[in-house]
Write a protein that binds this DNA or RNA. Structure first.
Lengths: 215, 215
DNA sequence: CCTACCGATCGGTAGG
DNA sequence: CCTACCGATCGGTAGG
């Protein structure tokens, strides 16, 4: 898992394709650090996490971890980029399979049910990072800007085609959709203490709102 | 608070009413610790906060702080109780002044605009505390249970009087209202970087949703 | 010269 | 409430 030599020829660019073993092992270790950091950050937040804990779970020393990521903030950045890449990939694949945008959003929310650590991570960091001096502040500021802009654009497009219920403001609806997804994550995470039948169904509740505003 | 010997006859509960000056100064210090702790917890979260920092801002040593609150979790509890008391008081006063429940909710959200540290605190802690071993986990579990139950009850009452738009499920709407308030807080906090005119108006967006489901 | 780390330790801080 | 500390652990860096 953390040791996969990969010696064969490769057409890839970057350090992945070196001769004599290349950096493949290093990349594999980085991936495992990122996956482990997601679990730990999700559990105790960025401030609460210790590099020693993350490193120990991976089976290396914490200076070993710092060889791959120069500091804690750099690790956080890699984690956020990883999360975005994972989401963006499956979302795009969904769109290419013919889903419309809001369907793809609902599928994304449904997939999140199987990725509790990622949800915990994102929910926790997005609130931690509202502090202007948090290392992920800029990341989240830009992320929300981007997501809200895209959401507004889509709803305005629908509005001109008559796809919005009367009286619905596209910008307000965009903020509401995003807020709803964030807020439902908290309720869903808290509901995981309860039996499966009583848990919050994030996709169903989001669909409930979309049914109110789309037509 | 956790150790109140209470030997003399007193009609009041707690150490507030001692003779010879009593514990008034101690209570004042406790209040200042709580108010300072709100600022610090809001800024860096529970895990990120240090008792020495809070104590220093109050002007005491950190063992001095621990004289008032036996540990970090106890301080957090006091902070949460303080927040609830503040909110509950103004909310009830609002209802007594004749506001209906949803009006009072909107007023609460409007008041939050002037209490950024409390909003940061609550937004941050509510996500931190989704982890089952977080010291505030039980508090938030119960709080959401209570708020959602009350919200559902109110919406069901409205439904039987015909006060809900057709097709709106009261339980789902309850979760949506709560999720919306939580999610909008994150967007509002992030929008504080921007000029006042571009900031998220939490009350307006909540009203937008209520207008969709109430009638 | 490279990689992938190690054991030890830096100055400070955690809760108690 | 203070000073004076504890066992441990924090993020980060030294030389090898």
């Amino acid at each position: 898992m953390s040791v996969s030599a990969q010696t064969g020829p490769s057409t890839r660019t970057g350090p992945t394709s070196g001769q004599r073993g290349g950096y493949a092992k290093g990349r594999a270790t980085q991936q495992e650090i990122i996956r482990t950091a997601i679990l730990v950050f999700a559990d105790v937040g960025f401030h609460g996490a210790s590099l020693r804990d993350i490193a120990a779970r991976v089976g290396i020393s914490h200076p070993g971890l710092l060889h791959h990521f120069p500091n804690k903030a750099a690790l956080l950045e890699a984690v956020l980029e990883y999360r975005d890449a994972v989401d963006e990939q499956s979302f795009q694949e969904d769109l290419e399979r013919g889903s419309d945008y809001f369907e793809a959003m609902l599928h994304l929310v449904e997939r999140n049910r199987l990725r509790r650590p990622l949800v915990e991570l994102f929910a926790g960091l997005s609130t931690e990072a509202t502090s202007p001096d948090h290392p992920a502040h800029e990341y989240f500021r830009r992320r929300y800007q981007r997501v809200l802009d895209e959401q507004s654009r889509l709803l305005r497009e629908r509005a001109v085609r008559g796809g919005l219920a009367p009286g619905v403001d596209p910008d307000q609806a965009a903020r509401t959709v995003v807020a709803l997804m964030d807020g439902l994550q908290v309720q869903w995470l808290l509901s995981l203490d309860r039996p499966a039948a009583e848990r919050v169904d994030m996709a169903a509740d989001l669909r409930g709102y979309l049914d109110l505003i789309l037509r």
